[in-house]
């Protein structure tokens, strides 16, 4: 199923040549979108293709959009304290579907104590307020590179 995603107009294409595609989502009941809009703009200016999931998507909807849009990275943000439940739900759904080639990064108001737990689930970054955009962009590029490599290896 994943094989089809690797060709464009029948021609196989190297991932490094395509812009990184990233889905930005707040997968819970949280409308604080200042940060995510700043990121949307910054990712776009960094040459990425950006999709915003809109207001209050469920974790199921986030994963569905990520698959349909064939993204490299899902960036999750929450400022309402529900990250331990909501981020985990997104990961669980991805795991259940056996999807390993979409990177998941996180951010928002995340207490230090939660960060290792999120990392363990596979959600990296987990940046808080005041983080430089460049640091976040570089992290996304790194994670996108990893999953693209994984896809290329699978495709070979």
């Amino acid at each position: 199923m994943l094989g089809g995603r690797y060709s464009v107009n029948g021609k196989s294409q190297k991932y490094t040549e395509k812009p990184i595609k990233i889905l930005l989502a707040k997968p819970a009941i949280d409308g604080h979108d200042r940060g995510i809009f700043v990121l949307a703009r910054a990712f776009r200016d960094a040459g990425m293709e950006v999709i915003y999931a809109g207001l209050l998507p469920t974790p199921e909807e986030v994963v569905e959009t990520a698959i349909n849009e064939d993204v490299d990275v899902i960036a999750l943000s929450l400022l309402n304290g529900a990250h331990m439940t909501a981020f985990k739900n997104v990961m669980n759904i991805l795991n259940k579907k056996g999807i390993r080639d979409i990177a998941v990064v996180g951010g928002g108001i995340i207490p230090d104590i939660d960060k290792p737990k999120l990392e363990k689930m596979g959600i990296t970054g987990n940046y808080g307020p005041g983080t430089k955009l460049n640091i976040i962009i570089e992290h996304v590029k790194k994670r996108a590179g990893e999953v693209r490599k994984m896809r290329e290896n699978e495709y070979k």
């Binding site: 819970a28 009941i29 949280d30 209050l56 469920t58 309402n80 304290g81 529900a82 331990m84 439940t85 909501a86």
Partner: peptide
């Protein structure tokens, strides 16, 4: 809290993890 602000009861699945948080 967020569930109240969006008109969901505390026992709605969507409210999980958010009751009383904000």
């Amino acid at each position: 809290d967020m569930p109240t602000l969006y008109g969901y009861d505390c026992d709605n699945g969507r409210s999980a993890g958010e009751v009383g948080k904000c």
